[in-house]
């Protein structure tokens, strides 16, 4: 089970059109990524809420098709 980085980026940008997204393939196996996401949509949200917003954007793939996605979210000013 795996997912392409471009697919992850597409889903995130679909949900957060203004997002700056940087995806790093941690293990070269299309299964372990790190993503840094900056978006104005995170403004006023707790870290938990921000990450849940990203998981929602991935439409249920997190923890299934996508095994590991280390997240770092920040508010884009």
């Amino acid at each position: 089970m795996a997912m392409q980085a471009a697919e992850i980026e597409r889903l995130i940008k679909e949900a957060f059109p203004d997002a700056e997204v940087t995806i790093t393939d941690l293990a070269g196996d299309n299964d372990h990524y790190a993503a840094m996401i900056a978006s104005s949509a995170f403004k006023g949200k707790t870290r938990v809420q921000q990450h849940q917003m990203v998981y929602d954007a991935l439409k249920g793939r997190m923890g299934g098709v996508l095994h590991a996605l280390s997240l770092q979210t920040s508010v884009k000013v």
Partner: peptide, 12 residues
């Protein structure tokens, strides 16, 4: 209360 997963723990 749910605090977070490993990313959030590491960040905090």
């Amino acid at each position: 209360e749910f605090v977070g997963g490993s990313d959030i723990l590491r960040e905090m």
